[in-house]
Design a protein around this nucleic acid. Structure first.
Lengths: 297, 297
DNA sequence: CGTAAACTGTTTATATCATACACTTATTCG
DNA sequence: CGAATAAGTGTATGATATAAACAGTTTACG
């Protein structure tokens, strides 16, 4: 039979039967037209609650063999070892010596387990070390600590950072940040915005570091990684669409083939941490400017 | 039979048979111990190449009925309409009127298709409007444009932003940024770091806006969304672990139940865009400081 | 004290996906 | 024309999340 010039209609048009999902588990955005909004709200509320409520053991049946923390610990160790894709319900259960379905006695869905794992993985910010060194140093420490935490758990960056409920540890990072600003006299709204500024920068700019951390954990050498990262950039060289970028890249790498992820000048190139520090320095300068402007007039 | 105090070993211990995945398709980090590093490198290279190479049609077999762009367009329209979870190979194929497997003639894996969809979705930055307004205004426009793009396609934020190959459009955003700095006399390394700074801030800080955009697209009202977001924060109130946060929240919301996502002072609260603008202003101030410090000594 | 409620973990089943593989058909080069 | 090659299809497989029914356990309560 001859195929018409137009695309063939596959005969097995099996009218996908409108994802039912009645229990209201996953499904953050399945079909959209007829989504049950209140159910979605309900579910988010429940996920959030799971992060905060104590595990009230009811006094009727047999004692649970596990605590939620045990499940979370298993989940985290899997993700730490082999990335987010290793975090399957089956794998977690097996590590604990249970069947997959047993986990659903502790978490209503994989998403809820991940919520909890993420919050646990965030940990709490490091305790204040010695004397208070002024907001600038304090924020700097905070930013480096957060970055280090993200790099230590690269799988956190595999998750979309939106729309997840925030747990106790997440709040503790916020709290620590606010403490650095406590005696600056800034308004609450300014403080909250500055969290967004610094935290936004830290998360947004850490992707290279995280990517390297992940590569390392997979046994990729730094050189290989740098080459892979640089490869994308170096495609811009001699491409008329990217005049400035092209000029920068070819001038910086001295005309030879550029293996470096970022252009190296004649002098010493900044290390990755120094790149981060540079940007952070600008952020802190910007905050300083703002404080000065408040004090002056 | 009495269960031992230790966890029950499920009888069906089916020794999960070491994910084989021979074709080398997905599997960014499956098992880690015996990962074939060079294969992973190979695959990344291939994914990147797919974003750049022209589709060279071989002159032997039948003409392909589609172009890669068609597939990408279908994928994007699905994701736009219903989020990333709607982007399945089946759905894309059905929209095009083909069978699922037909897509694999165009993209070797779903990941490769997503790579291409992401780059296409990024689009190109808006053309320069009128006269050059100075780097500060130009960067500001760039940042707002990028943020608007992210909000218009909230599903981009559902993807992990690491370890994906960068395509032509991604580079075009970089190029546009560099053009704003072209006549500032900054070193290439500084310019690249400033991209990281501004782009990091834009991506990292846009999550609230993106979350709202997504909620809207799902029919959630702004009020419901605000309540859901605020709920997590308001748990800190009266929690001894979060003294500063608690104080800020309870003072700001006047002691009543806080429905607002961010604390409202007596005066008018900043809108979401104004929050963004505030942080961006600090970033730009920080850049200004740096330029001044370079020019002065 | 015994029984039923409430709860635990297990078994079994199902739906959704990505994708491998073999096959049929279409196109074009020699 | 006929062989080679590629396109799209059909079917199968394996991974995964999770629903539903079940069986064993503990405790509250009559």
């Amino acid at each position: 039979m001859k195929r018409k010039t137009g695309p063939t209609r596959p005969p097995k048009t099996e009218q996908l039967p409108a994802p039912k999902r009645k229990g209201g588990a996953l499904a953050p955005h399945t079909v959209a037209p007829h989504i049950d909004v209140s159910a979605a709200q309900q579910e988010l509320r429940q996920r959030s609650q799971l992060l905060w409520e104590e595990q009230a053991r009811p006094s009727r049946g047999p004692k649970p063999a596990l605590r939620r923390e045990d499940v979370v610990a298993a989940a985290i160790s899997l993700a730490d070892a082999s990335g987010l894709s290793a975090l399957t319900m089956h794998a977690v259960a097996e590590r604990l010596g249970f069947t997959t379905m047993a986990l659903y006695r502790y978490f209503p869905s994989k998403e809820a387990l991940i919520d909890a794992s993420v919050d646990a993985a965030l940990g709490t910010p490091p305790e204040r070390h010695g004397a208070y060194e002024g907001w600038r140093q304090e924020i700097r420490h905070w930013a480096f600590a957060k970055r280090a935490m993200l790099c230590a758990r690269p799988w956190l960056a595999e998750l979309p950072f939106v729309a997840a409920p925030h747990g106790p540890n997440w709040l503790s990072w916020h709290e620590a940040f606010l403490q650095t600003l406590a005696d600056t006299g800034l308004s609450p709204e300014d403080m909250m915005d500055l969290i967004g500024l610094v935290d936004g920068y830290v998360r947004g700019s850490s992707d290279t570091a995280i990517s390297l951390a992940r590569a390392r954990s997979q046994g990729v050498s730094d050189a290989e990684w740098a080459q892979a990262v640089g490869a994308d950039l170096s495609r811009a060289v001699n491409d008329a669409r990217y005049p400035v970028l092209s000029a920068i890249l070819s001038s910086a790498s001295g005309g030879t083939k550029s293996d470096a992820p970022l252009p190296t000048r004649g002098g010493r190139m900044r290390t990755m941490d120094e790149h981060f520090e540079f940007g952070l320095g600008r952020v802190l300068d910007g905050i300083q400017c703002y404080m000065d402007s408040l004090g002056a007039p």
